[in-house]
Design a binder for these strands. Structure first.
Lengths: 248, 248
DNA sequence: CAAAGTCAAGAGCACTGCTCTCGATTCTTG
DNA sequence: CAAGAATCGAGAGCAGTGCTCTTGACTTTG
């Protein structure tokens, strides 16, 4: 989540690097990230070795430090990329179903995120698993991490606006939580009442709980058809999202 | 989860080791685990160093290998201990509230688990975060991991028996999932219908999603009063657990 | 064209997990 | 009770790691 600052306008994209040196530098930076990403994808973040990356690129280990000041910085770059990858997937799923009902859009969004997670389990673990040992998320990661959540929040706001999502007033919202919800509403969720934000956030964290349980093996020997199980669970979560039945 | 095998009866507890050598061995094994656990608690699993543990114990690093064949084995021992610690906490919470209603028991259970997680974040990450790099959960961890889930499943079975939990038939249970549910029912959840197991598992994974989001910083700058937020969310989850309102 | 900035390379430090060998101690067994 | 077997701590050593510093060659800039 960490939906705090609105996405800052890129200051100077500089898509066309001027000097030749800058061009090869950008290229090499990308190559290092690509190799590192592949290593992480294959063996996990803990096995990421600057020396191994350098070896594969045919350079000496100390040369890497010209491009990334430390292993953690390289890891941070990968984390940001992972956030953007999952956000892109989520946005694409939303774009394809934006004319459907909230339940269908929610299911598509959940399945898109799970699909990305299953295809890139180590990168998923990088951003939604335990924080990397000795690693504290720097400021640079909070903006990219907000993009995914924004997709969901917009879906919720949309559902409220269209009258598809109804508040569930069964649980009181404490004062302190209410003020957090006010801030959230003003920033990204206009028109979404507290009693929708509560269930929505529960469903949202539940999605990642379900994916993490599946990916990290906590459903091993319990659930075998993970696809069917996940879909059924997310359909149910969708019902929790849209709120109590309107039986009148 | 991994509720597969019923807890095996301890073959030979051997609580009173015979020889003096065996006694000091058991003692030293415990000391190594204690120091290692403290290191993990302070710096995370990635920073666990056999040499540092050995140093603190005044022995040489190679001596550790007389007690744990590898770093991963030491980590496995810590993982098992962590599972048992959280299970103990969960069982204690259940024992204290077993005469209350399902909603109250659920809330107490959720808060107990979250309390343990907040007190031992690195150990929580060890078992519910991403699997440790280069580490595959050995068979030894699945039995201890089942204990926590069993507390919850028994609570659910109890609620069904007492008529407090009602099935939510809004989402169809696929055939393959049904057969998993049948197995689960026969093993640990007698009398719990599919349409209760589904919501129950959703709530259960949601609990860990909520705790992970809080602990791993995904709610940073979004939620500030984590205690109040968690309680409200878990109360809502409790409503999802007990099933649809019975308004007739 | 020369000064300033940037680069890859190499050596080196402190650390890691792990293996092997070597005596010394302890347990088991005849 | 003593001999043989098992276990133990210590030490050296190997291959790997992140990271720093220096050196010499290169590119960009003024």
């Amino acid at each position: 989540m960490a939906i705090a600052a609105p996405p800052p306008a890129d200051p100077a994209p500089d898509n066309a690097p001027k000097t030749a040196r800058a061009r090869v530098r950008a290229e090499l930076t990308g190559e290092i990230k690509d190799v590192a990403r592949r290593h992480v994808a294959e063996a996990g973040s803990g096995s990421l070795s600057l020396r191994a990356v350098a070896r594969e690129l045919g350079m000496v280990s100390s040369a890497i430090y010209r491009y990334f000041p430390s292993r953690d910085d390289l890891l941070t770059a990968l984390i940001i990329d992972a956030y953007e990858a999952v956000a892109t997937v989520a946005e694409a799923a939303e774009a394809h179903t934006s004319r459907s009902g909230v339940a269908a859009r929610w299911l598509a969004l959940a399945q898109a995120i799970r699909g990305w997670a299953r295809a890139n389990p180590h990168e998923y673990a990088l951003i939604y698993g335990s924080p990397v040992p000795g690693y504290r998320a720097p400021q640079d990661t909070i903006a990219p991490s907000a993009r995914v959540s924004l997709v969901f929040i917009r879906l919720v706001a949309d559902g409220v606006e269209r009258g598809e999502i109804h508040p569930d007033p069964r649980v009181a919202i404490p004062r302190t939580v209410h003020s957090d919800f006010v801030a959230l509403r003003e920033l990204v969720a206009p028109g979404v009442p507290d009693h929708v934000l509560g269930p929505a956030l529960l469903v949202w964290t539940g999605l990642f709980g379900a994916i993490s349980f599946e990916l990290f093996g906590h459903l091993h020997n319990v659930i075998h058809d993970h696809d069917a199980f996940f879909e059924a669970q997310m359909r149910l979560a969708g019902h929790h999202l849209v709120g109590p039945d309107q039986r009148d």
